[in-house]
Structure formats: C-alpha cells, structure tokens
Simulated scan of single mutants.
Amino acid sequence: MSRGNNPPSTAELLAAHLAGLDRHVLGVTAGLDEEHAASSVVPSGWTMPWMLHHLAVDNLLLWTAAVIAGDPAAIARCAPDAENAAPATIAEARDSYAAESAAAQAVLTDLDLGAAPAWWPENLFGTWRLETNEQVITHLLVEVATHVGHLDLARELLDGSHWDVFRGQLVPPGG
C-alpha cells in the first residue's frame, strides 16, 4: 500500500478499506449451502444472493465503473430498467461480487480524489449529488460497510456461523 517510507495516500487507504470490506463480504458468505442462501431471515425478504447482487451492481458497479469512470456499459447496466436479475445461486452471486470487486479496485488505482465524477445518475437521486470522487468513494464505503453488517447478522441467524474480523475467517457455531 505505501511506497517506500512514504505513508499511503488517501486514495490508497480508501482502496485498502474497500478491499477489506470485500474480503469480509466474500468471507461471511463462504461455504453457505444453497438452502440457507435462498432463505430470508428479515421481513423484507432479501436473501444472501440478492444482497450480494445489490452490493455488486447497485454499489460497486454503479459508484466506480459508472459514476467515477463513466463507462457506458456500466451506465447501461445501472439503468433502472436494465435486466439485472439476482444470480440464482450463492456461488454465482459470490463470483459476480468478486468480479465487480476486482473491477472496482482497478478503477480506484491512481484515482484523482479531487476530480468530479465522470457521470452522475440524475434520474436516481433528484437534486442530491456527490461532487468529488473522494465523496463517491466515501459514500461507497459507508454503503458496503452497512450491508456487511446485514450479511453478518443474516449469516449468524441462518446457520450460527459468524465472521471474525480479527482472525479474518468464518467461525462455525459455538466457535
């Protein structure tokens, strides 16, 4: 992360925090059987594959590839009427998330935090707007971290396992 004796830049720190959250997302959803993955433990009805899809498309893809990078293909995938059905299996959802995570990290490489985002989804947020890439990445980190908490709780309710942040691993029930 750092270059020699120089401390890491703010962009490097933000990218490292996102990478840590991505490891957490993939870790807390690892080894989940399809029956549990397809089950919902919340009144809204979301499942683990749905939440991974939401994180991959509505968060990583939207905020990095579409908003920051202005990639036309990403913008099209983020349109409200785009065909973005949630993956059918937890394995597909994890693969999709991992792919979007890698793509997001690529966008963050050498990012000018003070620059304005390349594109803004006017039709999604009304007058609310983030003015710099730093604001966009900060917003993305909050979104992903919030949903990591949801995934943690859902996993514990589904099969009793939980993610141990300090050990960086999934801990079985009673462990």
Rank of each mutant, 00 (worst) to 15 (best):
54 H>S: 01
160 G>E: 10
129 R>N: 03
148 V>D: 10
46 W>E: 05
156 E>V: 09
133 N>L: 10
157 L>I: 12
62 L>W: 05
132 T>V: 07
124 L>W: 13
157 L>M: 14
65 A>I: 10
62 L>I: 02
106 A>I: 00
23 R>G: 01
82 A>T: 04
140 L>T: 02
55 L>A: 06
156 E>F: 14
90 I>A: 14
36 H>Q: 15
169 Q>G: 13
146 T>E: 11
88 A>T: 09
129 R>E: 08
60 L>D: 02
37 A>D: 08
105 Q>Y: 03
34 E>V: 05
117 P>F: 06
120 W>Q: 01
41 V>D: 12
70 G>K: 02
148 V>S: 06
156 E>I: 06
21 L>D: 08
54 H>W: 13
131 E>K: 13
161 S>D: 11
112 D>H: 13
84 N>R: 14
116 A>E: 15
170 L>D: 14
118 A>I: 02
67 V>G: 06
67 V>M: 10
117 P>T: 05
113 L>K: 12
44 S>W: 12
84 N>Q: 14
99 A>G: 03
92 E>R: 00
158 L>M: 14
22 D>L: 00
16 A>H: 07
11 A>K: 08
156 E>A: 04
166 F>P: 11
149 G>R: 01
163 W>Q: 03
70 G>A: 05
14 L>N: 10
47 T>S: 09
163 W>C: 00
14 L>W: 12
162 H>E: 13
63 W>E: 12
77 R>I: 08
37 A>I: 06
53 H>L: 02
56 A>T: 00
153 L>C: 12
42 V>G: 05
166 F>T: 15
7 P>C: 07
2 S>L: 10
126 G>I: 13
90 I>Q: 14
114 G>E: 14
77 R>N: 09
142 V>F: 15
174 G>V: 11
6 N>P: 15
31 G>N: 10
54 H>D: 08
95 D>V: 00
139 H>I: 10
71 D>N: 02
20 G>Q: 10
82 A>I: 07
130 L>M: 11
30 A>H: 15
115 A>C: 07
76 A>D: 10
153 L>Q: 12
90 I>T: 15
30 A>I: 13
98 A>Q: 04
133 N>D: 06
59 N>S: 13
120 W>R: 00
53 H>M: 02
33 D>I: 00
156 E>N: 15
112 D>L: 06
4 G>A: 09
50 W>A: 01
101 S>R: 01
117 P>W: 07
67 V>S: 02
82 A>E: 09
20 G>K: 05
79 A>S: 10
101 S>N: 03
26 L>F: 02
95 D>P: 01
168 G>R: 14
89 T>E: 02
165 V>S: 11
145 A>V: 13
5 N>I: 13
38 A>W: 05
26 L>H: 04
50 W>S: 01
44 S>K: 02
86 A>D: 00
114 G>M: 08
72 P>S: 06
144 V>L: 02
113 L>F: 08
26 L>C: 03
131 E>P: 09
175 G>C: 04
41 V>A: 07
71 D>P: 04
28 V>K: 01
58 D>Q: 13
128 W>P: 11
78 C>D: 12
160 G>Q: 06
75 I>E: 04
22 D>I: 01
11 A>S: 10
92 E>H: 00
133 N>W: 15
145 A>N: 15
160 G>W: 07
156 E>L: 06
142 V>T: 13
7 P>E: 15
128 W>G: 05
29 T>D: 04
142 V>Q: 12
50 W>I: 03
89 T>C: 04
